[in-house]
Simulated assay, not measured.
Amino acid sequence: MKRPVPRIDLFDVRPDDERAFVFAQDLRIIEARLFSSAEPQTSTTLRPHLSAKADVGALMEALQRDYAPRGVNLLRVAGGWMLCTAPDLAPVLNEQAPEQRKLSRAAVEVLAIIAYHQPVTRAEIEDIRGVSTSKGTLDVLLETGWIRLRGRRRTPGRPVTYGTTPAFLVQFGLDSVQDLPGLDELKGAGLLDGRIPAGFSIPLPSDDPQLHEDEEPVEPEPLDFTLSPLPTADEDEN
């Protein structure tokens, strides 16, 4: 049976109530790290700073409950937790947000294909889209930090494979790529029309960092020239 998470008022904890005092102190530590970090905090990054018997799950549940009615919410993102603006307050902050460069339609399509089909090569992206994909489109996505070079396909030419990054999950508020919408959700959102070909399906995405059997690590390309040896003292004199 799951033990209920205690409700603790951080301003009304007596030092003689050891369990409540330790729990409240752990909450304060987590809150401070969440507030000061631009990256998701995980159990691994939090645990060294908490008490020996800290229940990270219970602590995060307590914080999520406390932040739920506030202007800032605690959300599960990219395998960790982050403090994010409450979704219903986004219109209030839109005028303060810096104007961001919008991705082209081609870039959005390529990003979606990489997210759902990773690891995927440029040729495979072009096959799915049915049109050629410029290197510039991939370069733009690499600059955003949302995609990365995973490895090289073990096929002639050893083409580079692409995959998404934790920054992609943070940007779109996802805990993992498995949270991407499926076929029914895309239909419900009006992103797919009723003229879907028979047998059409959307793959279950995976961003497992381990290389697949048909991939090998990306290695620096060797330079096409070699440096001459440094001149000896006698050569310098001549």
Rank of each mutant, 00 (worst) to 15 (best):
M1D: 14
R3H: 11
R7Q: 08
D9N: 07
L10M: 15
D12K: 12
V22C: 08
Q25L: 09
L27G: 05
R33L: 11
S36R: 12
A38T: 07
A38E: 06
E39A: 15
P40M: 10
T44V: 13
T45C: 07
L46Y: 07
R47A: 09
P48E: 04
K53D: 04
G57V: 02
L59H: 08
L59C: 05
L63E: 07
P69F: 04
G71C: 01
L75S: 14
V77G: 01
A78Y: 07
A78I: 10
L83S: 00
D88A: 13
L89C: 01
L89H: 14
Q96Y: 14
Q100P: 04
R101T: 03
A107D: 09
V108Q: 10
L111E: 08
A115I: 12
A115E: 08
Y116W: 08
Q118V: 11
V131T: 12
V140Q: 12
L141S: 00
E143L: 03
G151L: 06
P159C: 07
P159G: 02
V160C: 09
Y162F: 15
T164P: 13
V170W: 05
S176W: 02
V177C: 14
L180T: 07
L186K: 09
G188W: 05
D193K: 02
G194W: 01
R195K: 13
R195W: 06
P197T: 13
F200H: 09
L211C: 10
E213Y: 05
D214T: 15
L227C: 08
P229H: 14
L230R: 11
L230I: 03
P231F: 04
D234E: 15
E235G: 00
